[in-house]
Amino acid sequence: MSKPYSDPYLAGTGLGLTLLAAFALAGRGLGASGAFTSVAARFVDAPPLHRSDWLLFEIGGVFVGGFLSALAAGRFRLVLERAPRMALAFLGGAVMGLGAVLARGCTSGLALTGGALLSVGSWLFMIAAFAGAYLLAPLVKRAWR
C-alpha cells in the first residue's frame, strides 16, 4: 500500500531549503538539463554544451533521492504506459532539450535557481514556459486519457 504524497507547501519548502543549501555550500543553484548537456558535450563540440561534473554528481543524487523516497513510501513500481504516451514522452523530451539549450537552462537551473535570485531572464523563461504549456495543453489533452 503506497502512502499519499506530502503536502505541496511542505515539500516545496524542503526543496527551497535544498536550493538555499546549494547557494551557501556550492555558490550555485540546482540543475537538471545541464547534466544532459554535460553528457552530450562528450560527443558533440558545440558552444552551448558545457561539461559539468558537479551537475552529473548532483543528478546522480537526484536518482538516489527519488528512489529512496519512493521506496520509503511504497511507491516504487515498474510502470510502462501505452505506446502513444511513451512516444509523446520521447517527443516532448526532445522539444524540451531544444528549448533548454536555447534558454540556457530548465525548470531547475533557470526557473527555480534564478527565480529565487530574482534573475530577469529566469522569470521571463518561467512565464514563457507556462505560456507555451497552456497554449498547447488543449491540443494534447486526449493523450492524457
Binding site: L102, T107, S122, A131, W144
Partner: peptide, 30 residues
C-alpha cells in the same frame, strides 16, 4: 552565488518551446 544570465529573446523562445515540450512529455528534465 552565480545568478543565471539573461538573454531575452533566446529565453523567451526557449521558454515557449520548453513549455510546449513539457505538456507533451508530462515531465521536465529534473
Amino acid at each position: 552565488v552565480y545568478v543565471p544570465e539573461t538573454y531575452l529573446l533566446p529565453q523567451l523562445a526557449g521558454g515557449l518551446l520548453f513549455g510546449a515540450g513539457f505538456v507533451v512529455a508530462g515531465l521536465c528534465p529534473g
